[in-house]
């Protein structure tokens, strides 16, 4: 009875969303595999089929591989900083007696801000004349020692070849820390308190407690965090685009910005789509590999 009445809604409710989803959401993804085999400048009536030519162009495209390199740098740099630090912050927040809510609230603020704002903020903070950072270093007499330590002739954080990439990693760390800390906090909250109490009675404390109880039980969360970091890391776009004001230099160019530029500035739409097919393959491969690797590790525990 109920089902027969509710079935009246199937067409009016499912129709519009399914139609929108198929046409705008799904279909262009399938079309992309054909586009990747064509050449198109956006002006000619139709694309020209060129077979696998775009992919052989890609193999020889030095600027593309530079972008791939930078992407790997950012992804790995973000993983090795964000993962341990957000885990540490989650544990610290659990361990303090006062101000837990305050820390949870403020730590997430950078994550709710638009990436454009964050980029903007850091460009100004790191500006040599009106920023806060360099004048402070100068006042503290740290400018020269820091230059020597880093082996650079100016503290041009976002422009110097040696400094630009680590600076971007640090900005990503600042923005992402709250998000991943909250994920780890949710994971920690799922660990039963009795289990930790029992371990403490058995004499486990500090590092031992973490190593043998918390870490293995937190592993599913760590797996999720790692996967998110990989997927988001490989697809980084807005931060790099906004930090360079859209005029991306080879110094910080990443896969996504290069694809965007190839399509909408150079108007090589077929080639850009071939590059995005490659990007998709990378994301899928990394997802599978990281799942498999962490699965094995989880069993060993």
């Amino acid at each position: 009875m109920l089902q027969r009445e509710l079935r009246k809604l199937v067409i009016p409710f499912l129709g519009p969303s399914l139609a929108l989803y198929l046409v705008i959401g799904l279909w262009p993804n399938l079309e992309a595999f054909y586009w990747a085999l064509t050449e198109y400048d956006g002006l000619a009536p139709i694309q020209t089929y060129v077979g696998l030519e775009n992919f052989s162009t890609m193999l020889a495209d030095r600027r593309w591989w530079g972008a791939v390199n930078n992407t790997i740098y950012f992804a790995i740099g973000t993983i090795i900083t964000l993962l341990p630090i957000s885990l540490l912050f989650a544990i610290l927040i659990m361990s303090v007696r006062r101000g837990r809510e305050f820390f949870k609230t403020t730590i997430y603020i950078p994550s709710i801000l638009s990436v454009v704002i964050v980029a903007f903020l850091w460009v100004f903070l790191l500006d040599s004349t009106i920023g806060l950072f360099n004048p402070a270093l100068k006042a503290l007499g740290l400018t020269e020692p820091l230059k020597q330590l880093l082996g650079v002739n100016s503290l041009n954080w976002l422009g110097h070849p040696k400094l630009a990439k680590p600076t971007i990693v640090l900005i990503q760390l600042w923005q992402g820390l709250g998000f991943y800390t909250l994920l780890f906090l949710a994971g920690l909250a799922k660990i039963p308190g009795e289990l930790l109490d029992a371990a403490r009675i058995d004499g486990a404390a500090g590092w031992g407690l973490f190593r043998h109880i918390t870490w293995p039980l937190l592993f599913p969360t760590t797996q999720t965090v790692l996967l998110l970091l990989i997927i988001n890391g490989v697809q980084i776009f807005t931060l790099v685009y906004a930090l360079s004001g859209g005029g991306i230099s080879p110094l910080t160019q990443v896969m996504a910005t290069y694809i965007y530029r190839t399509a909408f500035t150079d108007r090589l739409f077929g080639y850009a789509t071939a590059l995005s097919v490659f990007l998709m393959a990378v994301v899928m491969a990394l997802t599978i590999v990281s799942r498999e690797l962490t699965k094995r590790e989880a069993i060993e525990m």
């Binding site: 279909w27 262009p28 586009w35 995005s276 990007l279």
Partner: peptide
């Protein structure tokens, strides 16, 4: 409907623009 959760957004960028 769930398929597109697994596809990176850039794949459809160009075809969707021309659509």
């Amino acid at each position: 409907f769930l398929i597109s959760l697994m596809i990176p957004g850039y794949l459809a960028m160009v075809p969707r623009y021309f659509l």
